[in-house]
Write a protein that binds this DNA or RNA. Structure first.
Lengths: 118, 118
DNA sequence: ATAATAGTTGAACAATTATTCAACTATTCG
DNA sequence: CGAATAGTTGAATAATTGTTCAACTATTAT
């Protein structure tokens, strides 16, 4: 099943190292949620949407205009962002206004930008 | 081309808002690099690899054993992480040891975990 | 009530990508 | 040298996913 098990003669040599590293392995629950979050942030359209919502709420149509994309495409991505609890919405008449749920995401972006800036 | 342009009667109403939001739109270069980084972090295998490299370098075979995956799969992902400059490698004999390049990534993870923890 | 508009939704399509497989290189050891 | 081992690589496959399209709901205005 796993080609590696019978090989790697140095197994005994690195054994302690491996055991210790195993204890550092991220647990399944954290892994799922953190990876999920990064997957959501790893899309250009969603990043753009979040960036224009920094200071104020916007309706779907506004966002579509700013990004020069269809309302449908934007709506799909807004749904993804809403399910991930990164944004929230409120309806006024026919319009639905979206805004950021908290500033955690921007701290993450800021940190990522710092990393990238090097 | 864009279904939205002729619609959205409230254009005049939200005009200032839209213009201001446009100025907040993340620029193309930052967008590319930040999204690229998050794409790389948005994979369970890569996240696991980074997590086991927190404290010490490991060879490909060690990582493969810890994650119970083939050396080939691990090697492919290590290459991705190396190209993204998240890890570095050094060769000793037949073995190639991989380690984190800096601790930026873990600050990002830490922040993401905090976000997720809510 | 009818028309117009804002937004949502599901299916289809296209593009991306993680893993597998097999073949390959490089290094060590007998 | 030849055998064994660590790791890499490219092609193929399978799964995921972002956008489009068309049809739909909900709200407003005439």
């Amino acid at each position: 099943m796993n080609e590696n098990v019978p090989n790697c003669k140095n197994n005994y040599l690195h054994k302690d190292k491996i055991e210790h590293a195993k204890s550092l392995l991220i647990n399944d629950e954290d892994l799922f949620f953190v990876t999920q979050l990064f997957k959501i942030l790893g899309d250009e359209t969603r990043t753009k949407i979040l960036s224009v919502l920094i200071e104020d709420e916007l309706c779907v149509c506004d966002i579509a205009k700013i990004l020069d994309m269809t309302k449908s495409a934007i709506s799909h991505q807004l749904k993804t962002l809403r399910i991930a609890k990164l944004i929230k919405s409120r309806k006024i008449g026919k319009e639905v206004f979206y805004s950021l749920k908290d500033d955690h995401v921007f701290k993450i972006y800021k940190m990522a930008t710092e990393h990238v800036a090097e």
